[in-house]
């Protein structure tokens, strides 16, 4: 018993985990994304407001710009569409599969995450 068995078991565990990750790459991502139940529930509850928030900001900015520049519907239409897109982007950032390697920068990541 003692150190040698322990360290060899650790090495085996590590190799086993690597092999499992190789076979099923999204399992590691899932495990880190769904760390605990409360995190999952929190994520689900976030999705709706994330979407609405983008739209709210877009509409508010469009309305404000129109009011300021007197160009009644132009910016409202433009910013509503872009706000909706921003809302979808928010939700996508929330639900997309997370990278297994946290430190590897995601090329599609903006300021968020």
């Amino acid at each position: 018993m003692g150190k040698e068995t322990d360290s060899s078991r650790h090495a085996f565990d590590r190799r086993l985990k690597q092999a499992m990750d190789r076979n099923n790459p999204d399992r590691a991502a899932q495990a880190s994304a769904q760390g605990s139940d409360i995190t999952t529930v929190g994520t689900v509850l976030r999705a709706g407001t994330e979407m609405v928030a983008g739209l709210v900001v877009g509409v508010a900015m469009g309305w404000g710009l129109d009011r300021w520049l007197g160009s009644r519907p132009v910016f409202l239409i433009l910013f509503s569409l872009m706000g909706g897109a921003a809302g979808v982007l928010n939700v996508w950032r929330l639900v997309r599969p997370q990278d297994a390697l946290e430190d590897k920068p995601d090329p599609s990541a903006g300021p968020e995450r």
Partner: peptide
């Protein structure tokens, strides 16, 4: 197209943060 959407997405953070709790 992308930059305004990213900016709107960034600005929507405090909105979603506050609306979620309040609602």
């Amino acid at each position: 197209l992308l930059v305004p959407i990213e900016i709107l997405s960034f600005l929507s953070r405090p909105v979603s943060l506050s609306i979620r709790l309040f609602a």
